[in-house]
């Protein structure tokens, strides 16, 4: 029996809607599962105290601080480099062999797995440059990891700024640099921020690379040369070594809430940017 085109369309579209529904259900399930088990244990004292007996008791304050330091510093290092690269690619050169090489580098870097970044950060920052397993080694490794994201999103944001803006600025007698700073970057800021916020989210989520570079010390980091355990790694160690399921769920909840907040922020920034440059 031959199935009519209309019937096969109904079946196919129904199947694809089912796939979409499953995907959405998986997302909701993961978030709800973690938050339902973890949120009740996220108390003020859990957020502000240090862990005791390897994390079985006590809170996660040092890991919150460690995460903010490692991820924050990573983005602080990567953002200027990434934005400058994007400015160079869009405003200071023509497409040619050089831009192809720069883009190829960024594309390849984006594909390198985090465990390789970890191995590299370990031999390069921690050993060769003598930084040891530390906040600094971890954040520089992550900076390299998120650099391609920042380059790509900044480039897209800068390209979306209408060309007429630049012409007006040049017409008023501005130099290229003045135009970049006062006109192009100012208009592109919300778009660039989206990439920075996404990179912050990726840095917070990362585990394999920080495990090999920032170490897993439980104490409060006193300087950038101290080892510090991030939230994601703490969660992994608590869960994998079965130290405390309760604290594992609670730590994961804090992580998930941070990721959710960053995603909402980047979504809001993106909408603002689209409204601003009027696409």
């Amino acid at each position: 029996m031959r199935v009519s085109p209309a019937t096969s369309q109904r079946v196919a579209v129904g199947f694809m809607w089912a796939l979409a529904a499953i995907t959405f259900a998986v997302l909701v399930f993961i978030l709800a599962f973690i938050l339902a088990h973890g949120l009740p244990h996220v108390t003020w004292s859990f957020l502000t105290q240090s862990p005791t007996s390897m994390g079985r008791e006590g809170g996660i304050f040092p890991m919150i601080l460690g995460t903010i330091l490692v991820a924050g510093l990573a983005v602080l290092v990567a953002a200027p480099i990434g934005v400058a690269t994007a400015v160079y690619l869009t405003e200071y050169t023509r497409e040619g062999r050089l831009t192809a090489v720069i883009r190829f580098g960024a594309d390849c870097l984006a594909g390198v797995p985090s465990i390789i970044f970890g191995l590299f950060g370990f031999v390069f920052f921690a050993i060769a440059l003598g930084m040891g397993l530390s906040v600094l080694s971890g954040s520089l490794t992550l900076a390299l990891m998120v650099l391609p994201t920042i380059i790509r999103t900044s480039e897209e944001a800068i390209r979306a700024v209408p060309y007429a803006y630049r012409e007006v600025s040049f017409g008023l007698g501005s130099t290229r640099w003045q135009t970049v700073i006062h006109v192009v970057l100012r208009s592109a800021i919300p778009g660039i921020s989206t990439g920075i916020v996404l990179s912050l989210g990726r840095s917070i989520s990362e585990t394999a690379a920080v495990m090999l570079t920032a170490g897993s010390a439980l104490r409060l980091p006193r300087s950038l040369f101290d080892s510090s355990r991030t939230l994601a790694l703490h969660f992994y160690i608590l869960a994998r070594e079965g130290i405390s399921m309760t604290n594992a769920y609670a730590t994961a909840s804090v992580l998930i809430i941070a990721i959710l907040a960053l995603n909402v922020l980047s979504y809001w920034l993106m909408r603002r940017f689209v409204a601003k440059v009027g696409r």
Binding site: Y92, T93, I102, L109
Partner: peptide, 24 residues
Amino acid sequence: LIGAVLLVVALSAISGLALIAAFI
């Protein structure tokens, strides 16, 4: 001059990739 400085910075991704490959 600014263009030259930006070019040097822009090469950091490809240099990072080369460093990673070299050390690994």
